[in-house]
Computed example of a mutant assay.
Amino acid sequence: MPEGASDPGLTEKQRRELEVVRCMIGIYCRGHHGSKRAELCAECRELADYVAQRVARCPMADSKTFCSSCPIHCYRPAMRERIRAVMRYAGPRMLLVSPIKALAHAVDTLRERTRGGKGRA
């Protein structure tokens, strides 16, 4: 289980969000930095830790599905750009690496869009 995913202070939505993002960061790190499957380079580990911190402290946790659908942007601009690059690269590859997580993420995103959330970062 990804680090932080068993934190009792996280909601189920936050746990799912953190799992998806950590999986995406792993895909990105393997593709761009040549890391091994269960490892992250220092730069990607820093990003994953930052994301976990933001998710854990989210004031909107109960009313949104993913950070991309949140009206508040709590990521620093540089970190926001880094996570966007990760998602652009890893998003399409999620179907090959973790199809169940990818499909669950797609369903959650579509559900959020139909509820009126914006569904994009």
Results as ranks from 00 to 15, higher is better:
residue 40 L to N: 12
residue 51 V to S: 11
residue 98 S to N: 15
residue 4 G to C: 02
residue 103 L to K: 03
residue 5 A to G: 01
residue 19 E to A: 08
residue 42 A to Y: 04
residue 62 D to H: 09
residue 36 K to I: 03
residue 36 K to D: 11
residue 8 P to Q: 09
residue 82 R to D: 13
residue 115 R to Y: 02
residue 104 A to H: 05
residue 9 G to N: 15
residue 81 E to D: 12
residue 35 S to E: 14
residue 15 R to W: 00
residue 78 A to M: 10
residue 20 V to Y: 10
residue 68 S to E: 09
residue 53 Q to W: 04
residue 104 A to Y: 02
residue 66 F to H: 10
residue 105 H to G: 10
residue 100 I to L: 15
residue 106 A to T: 15
residue 44 C to Y: 09
residue 121 A to F: 14
residue 14 Q to P: 02
residue 20 V to F: 07
residue 80 R to I: 00
residue 28 Y to Q: 00
residue 6 S to I: 00
residue 12 E to I: 06
residue 33 H to M: 09
residue 73 H to P: 02
residue 20 V to E: 07
residue 111 R to Y: 09
residue 30 R to L: 05
residue 106 A to W: 08
residue 62 D to Y: 00
residue 53 Q to P: 01
residue 87 M to G: 07
residue 90 A to S: 13
residue 67 C to T: 04
residue 105 H to Q: 13
residue 91 G to S: 04
residue 35 S to K: 13
residue 2 P to M: 06
residue 33 H to C: 15
residue 75 Y to T: 00
residue 7 D to F: 01
residue 93 R to K: 14
residue 69 S to H: 10
residue 111 R to S: 15
residue 105 H to F: 10
residue 108 D to I: 01
residue 107 V to Q: 05
residue 49 D to Y: 09
residue 96 L to D: 07
residue 94 M to P: 03
residue 44 C to N: 08
residue 77 P to W: 00
residue 33 H to S: 08
residue 100 I to H: 07
residue 46 E to R: 11
residue 72 I to F: 07
residue 58 C to V: 03
residue 60 M to R: 15
residue 119 G to F: 04
residue 43 E to N: 06
residue 96 L to H: 06
residue 72 I to W: 10
residue 118 K to E: 13
residue 108 D to K: 07
residue 53 Q to M: 10
residue 8 P to K: 13
residue 42 A to W: 06
residue 16 R to P: 00
residue 36 K to M: 05
residue 40 L to H: 10
residue 99 P to T: 03
residue 22 R to S: 14
residue 7 D to V: 00
residue 47 L to Y: 12
residue 58 C to F: 08
residue 65 T to I: 06
residue 80 R to W: 07
residue 67 C to V: 01
residue 89 Y to L: 12
residue 54 R to I: 11
residue 41 C to V: 05
residue 7 D to M: 06
residue 18 L to E: 07
